[in-house]
């Protein structure tokens, strides 16, 4: 780790570094690492793309900033993202738009990107592999937010000190840097956020439905003490309308899929055997509390053949 910090210092010199903080483990460790290397030459910006978990901006400006020990600016770009994504259904297209808009938002958040020579990114090894490999031999499974979708005319040089690490190794680095368990123990969250957990078109209404359902699910996992046993858990909004009957009335509403997987490095994964009572409690709460949902299913696929995320 000392040699990495030394290398960041050498690469950056007297230049300024801008770092995108997402709320996830990777970018928190990245920011802490860069801050340790170059201190106040680092400026941390959080772009709210409107595709976040419920209460996420509060976590960023509260608990996360407090744990990092330095300020994280929160900039709300949710309207811009949603309008750019209007009518887009193809997952690769969504990822590309979000990735590109992300950089644009950064530039706009810092007024003049020219002052910042470097952009810190928390790219990890599996991201590169899923985007087609270091040497371009591996098949592209998904272009990753951190890797694909970067516009060609980008004004920053990328600083990616975690790019040869796997997730469990990143957590170890974070621990050495003194970040607390609750920050490091958070489940991975993809850069494009709920954008790739809403199948098909992204609308404000769908984001709201998914946020509520996801919140109920994650809350229950924490309440039952199983959050930390799971690598990643989340809800997916599947806009396949199915017929239901609620209070003698026929409904024709959305499907929510729950996914919880175990993994060590994100490369392979198996579905988590959720206790029946938790499944039943979560399903019941979601259909009762979230308007627009009348059916809940649990995803029982491993990776491979499926990926962890749905898009």
């Amino acid at each position: 780790m000392e040699s990495t910090i030394e290398e960041i210092r050498r690469t950056v010199g007297e230049e300024k570094v801008l770092c995108g903080v997402s709320g996830g483990v990777d970018s928190a460790v990245l920011a802490k690492l860069i801050h340790k290397a170059v201190g106040s030459q680092l400026r941390c910006v959080f772009v709210d793309h409107g595709l976040l978990r419920k209460n996420e901006p509060d976590y960023i400006s509260g608990r996360l900033a407090q744990s990092l020990g330095f300020e994280v600016e929160v900039h709300d770009f949710s309207e811009t993202f949603l309008s750019k994504l209007d009518g887009i259904v193809d997952p690769e297209e969504k990822r590309r738009i979000i990735g590109e808009q992300f950089i644009r938002s950064f530039e706009s958040a810092v007024q003049s990107g020219a002052d910042f020579r470097f952009l810190g990114q928390g790219t990890l090894y599996p991201d590169i592999i899923e985007s087609g490999g270091v040497r371009g031999t591996a098949d592209v499974i998904k272009s990753h937010h951190n890797v694909g979708g970067l516009p060609d005319d980008m004004e920053f040089e990328l600083l990616e000190p975690l790019r040869e690490l796997f997730k469990d190794e990143v957590r170890k680095v974070g621990k050495e840097l003194g970040l607390p368990e609750d920050v490091l123990g958070r489940h991975p969250f993809p850069g494009p956020g709920l954008g790739v957990r809403i199948i098909g078109e992204i609308t404000k209404e769908r984001v709201k439905i998914l946020q509520e359902a996801d919140h109920i699910f994650i809350d229950a996992l924490r309440k039952h003490g199983i959050y930390d046993k799971i690598w990643q858990a989340f809800a997916v909004l599947v806009p396949v309308k199915t017929v239901g009957v609620m209070g003698d009335e026929r409904t024709y509403a959305n499907l929510i899929a729950l996914r919880a997987v175990t993994s060590v490095d994100g490369m392979t994964a198996d579905w988590y055997r959720l206790p029946e009572n938790v499944l039943s409690e979560v399903s019941n709460k979601i259909v009762n509390l979230v308007t627009g949902v009348n059916r809940v299913v649990y995803d029982v696929s491993s990776k491979p053949p499926s990926t962890i995320e749905w898009e």
Binding site: I129, F166, D265
Partner: peptide, 14 residues
């Protein structure tokens, strides 16, 4: 020798 596996780096890691 890498033939394009998703797991080549895992082999190296092991």
């Amino acid at each position: 020798i890498d033939y394009g596996s998703q797991y080549t780096q895992l082999i190296a890691r092991r």
